[in-house]
C-alpha cells in the first residue's frame, strides 16, 4: 500500500513522492556484521598502503619505517582475513572462496588478492622480526607490494557491486575514498611506531591521504543525489561527520608532528580512528539506504522518467 502520510511528509523535501509496499524494504539489507566487515575493510586498506610504505622505506634506507610497514601489512592483512572468516555463515568452508576464480565476483577476485598478499607479508614480517633470511624477506616484501595498491581499493568494488543504492550509485568515487583512507591510515601507523627522524614520509602520507579522502568524500556526497542523504543524516551521517572531523584534527596534528612526539601520537591515533570511522560510516550508510525503499524507488523512477524523456 502506498504511504500517504509518509509521502506527504516527504514530498515536502525535493519532491520525493514515492509509493511502496507498507514501507517495506525492496532489497535485502546486507547480512554482514559489525565490527567484522568494517574491520575487514579498514585492515585491508591499512595493510595495502603499509606494504608499499615498507618497500619504499627499505629502498630509501629507513629501517624503522620498513619494519613498521612490514609488520602493519602482515598484521593488517591477517586480521582482515580473520574478520572475513568470522563473518561467514559457515566459517569452516572459508577455503571454498578459493574453489574457483570468478572475475564477476569482487569477493572472489579479492580473495585471490588477499590470500597471496597476506602470506607474502607474513613472511616478510617474520624475516624482519627474526632477522633471518633477509633476502627472502626482501623478495616477499617486494612481491607483496605488487598486490598492495589493489588491496587499498578492491573492497570499494566489493561494496559497490551490490544493489545497495548507497554503495552502488557512488561506485566512481568510493575507491578514491578508500584509497585516501588507506594511505592516511598507513601514515598514521608509521607515525605512531617510527622515530620522528625517519617518519617524514609517514607524515606526508597522513596529510596526502587525508586530503584525498576528504576530497573524494565530498565529491561522492555531491554526486549521490537523493542517496547522499544517508551520508549526511541520521546515525550514519553522524559517523561520517565524526570521521571527517577526526581526519581534519589528525591532519592538523600531523603538521606539528615533526617537532613533537605528542603531536605525532595524537595524529596517529586520530587518523587511525578516522579511517576506521570512515569505513564504518560508509558501511552503515549503505545499510540505511537498503532499509528504506525510498532510495531504491526514487532514483529508479527518476531514471525511467529521464529515459522516457530522452526517447519520447
Amino acid at each position: 500500500m502506498s504511504r500517504p502520510d509518509d509521502s506527504a511528509e516527504r514530498s515536502a523535501e525535493a519532491g520525493n513522492d514515492f509509493r511502496s509496499y507498507y514501507g517495506q524494504p525492496i532489497i535485502k539489507e546486507p547480512t554482514w556484521k559489525v565490527p567484522d566487515v568494517p574491520a575487514y575493510l579498514y585492515l585491508g586498506g591499512l595493510a595495502g598502503a603499509s606494504s608499499s610504505m615498507a618497500v619504499l622505506a627499505e629502498l630509501t634506507g629507513r629501517t624503522h619505517l620498513n619494519r613498521t610497514g612490514r609488520v602493519a601489512a602482515a598484521v593488517g592483512s591477517t586480521a582482515s582475513v580473520v574478520a572475513l572468516i568470522h563473518d561467514l555463515g559457515r566459517p569452516a568452508r572459508f577455503l571454498n572462496m578459493l574453489r574457483v576464480f570468478k572475475p564477476t565476483s569482487p569477493l572472489s577476485v579479492g580473495s585471490w588478492i588477499i590470500a597471496p598478499f597476506s602470506s607474502l607479508t607474513a613472511a616478510a614480517a617474520a624475516s624482519e622480526i627474526t632477522g633471518r633470511l633477509p633476502l627472502i624477506g626482501r623478495l616477499t616484501s617486494i612481491s607483496a607490494s605488487v598486490l598492495a595498491p589493489a588491496m587499498t581499493t578492491y573492497t570499494a568494488v566489493l561494496l559497490s557491486d551490490t544493489a545497495v543504492p548507497g554503495w552502488h550509485e557512488v561506485y566512481r568515487e568510493l575507491p578514491f575514498v578508500f584509497a585516501g583512507s588507506a594511505v592516511s591510515s598507513a601514515g598514521a601507523v608509521g607515525m605512531l611506531a617510527t622515530p620522528r627522524g625517519e617518519a617524514a614520509p609517514a607524515r606526508r602520507m597522513a596529510l596526502a591521504g587525508s586530503a584525498l579522502e576528504l576530497a573524494a568524500s565530498h565529491r561522492m556526497e555531491q554526486r549521490a543525489g537523493v542517496i547522499g542523504e544517508v551520508y549526511r543524516e541520521g546515525r550514519s551521517g553522524k559517523v561520517v561527520r565524526a570521521a571527517k572531523v577526526l581526519t581534519c584534527v589528525g591532519a592538523g596534528a600531523a603538521l606539528l608532528a615533526r617537532r613533537s612526539r605528542v603531536a605525532a601520537i595524537g595524529a596517529g591515533l586520530c587518523l587511525t580512528a578516522a579511517s576506521a570511522a570512515t569505513r564504518y560510516g560508509i558501511f552503515e550508510a549503505g545499510r540505511v539506504s537498503a532499509r528504506d525503499p525510498k532510495y531504491t524507488v526514487v532514483p529508479q523512477r527518476e531514471r525511467l522518467a529521464n529515459e522516457g524523456a530522452a526517447s519520447g
Binding site: 595498491p149 581499493t153 561506485y171 568515487e173 614520509p201 602520507m205
Partner: peptide
C-alpha cells in the same frame, strides 16, 4: 567499477611514492 578502482589504486601508489 574496476576501472575506477584501478585508477584509485594507482593514485594511492603514486601518492605514497611521492611522499618518499
Amino acid at each position: 567499477m574496476w576501472k575506477h578502482a584501478a585508477g584509485a589504486a594507482l593514485t594511492a601508489a603514486v601518492t605514497i611514492a611521492a611522499c618518499f
